Amino acid sequence: MVDQMIDVKALGKVAVLMGGRSAEREVSLMSGNGVLAALRARGVDAHAFDPAERRLDELAREGFDRCFIALHGRFGEDGTVQGALELLGIPYTGPGVMASSVAMDKLMTKRIWLAEGLPTPAWRQVHSAEETLAAFEALGAPMIVKPVREGSTIGLTKVMTAEQCEAAYALASSQDPMVMCEQFIDGDEVTCPVLGTDAQARALPVIRIVAPDGNYDYQNKYFTDDTKYLVPCGLPAGEEEAIQAIVLKAYRTLGCRGWARADVMIDRRTRRPWLLEINTSPGMTGHSLVPMSARATGLSYEDLCVQVLAGAALDNPSAIRSGA
């Protein structure tokens, strides 16, 4: 159950930011409407707010006290909305400006993790189909080609042959001018959410993802019931705890707060975990993973939403506008 010390009336007037202008708009609307219904069910004065249809300064004019960010991808998960809310002095859910911006950039995330000794697959940044082919020759098959600043596997290709490199680069670069190639890790695909800030941050149960033919793409993430999510994850003894420890360090290394979810691959042969990326505004749809993991600890969807909302904050707390 949610912390009984949370007074939902004290949370004030809440805007659930959803929709937006990213390629993940459809998923964001599903997340946002789920969060909106959950908060209202718990007595929160919550309202839908789509930044693609309304100016953000209306949040201040209409007296909103805090925001639940249910936006995904660019213009919502990349520090831009977070920066605007900092200027408006309205606390918001999830990591702050810098952590959101860095986590959205998969290359910068990897560079920081590598500097901190955290395991992440080998990669190359590429600027052309020719460089993609060179990366394929260096990294080997299979290889993942994807946009640097996109989510939900949009623009991603699993390259098996050299002949696929040109089309893979074209697809990724159509979503983002920054494109990366990444070594493919064959093994178990898992994800692990984190809730909380600083010393109070804790890793939730690991979820093992079993997708049809091992293809956890956009369709299998959101629009089919064929993908299996295993909680408890059923990993060998000690592996879940090791993954939780790595994910928690990855979360803190980037300066995350509030909540996030990290994706990890476990090498089938060595059983070594490899960090792929971290999502700072996780999905909250009917297929989403954070609610699934939270439920395994006894935390309902509704109470999870209230707990995340109660943790809304600013990078500079003194900037909270008068009356908030």
Rank of each mutant, 00 (worst) to 15 (best):
V16W: 09
C165I: 04
C256Y: 07
Q175I: 07
R208L: 03
D198R: 15
G311N: 12
P232V: 02
S174P: 13
L304E: 06
I246K: 11
E26T: 09
M180F: 04
V290G: 03
V97F: 12
G89H: 09
V102W: 12
N316S: 13
L204F: 06
R271I: 00
T120L: 02
A48Y: 12
V16D: 11
V264F: 01
M284P: 09
D303K: 05
S288C: 03
V206F: 04
L87G: 01
C165A: 14
E24L: 12
A319T: 10
L139G: 12
V159C: 06
A262C: 11
V16E: 06
E77F: 01
I266Y: 01
S300F: 13
T191F: 00
K110M: 09
G187V: 06
E24A: 10
V145Q: 01
F49W: 04
E26P: 00
E277H: 10
A48I: 09
A211R: 02
W274R: 06
D225C: 04
E150Y: 01
V194F: 08
W259P: 00
L276D: 01
P91D: 01
E302T: 13
L114M: 15
R54Y: 15
R74L: 11
D50K: 02
N316A: 14
S300P: 00
L289I: 04
I243E: 00
P147I: 11
G34F: 05
G258W: 06
T285E: 08
K158N: 05
F223P: 03
Q307A: 14
F49H: 06
E166M: 05
M292I: 08
A41P: 03
S152P: 10
A242M: 10
G238W: 08
W113N: 06
R74M: 12
T157L: 09
T227M: 09
V97C: 10
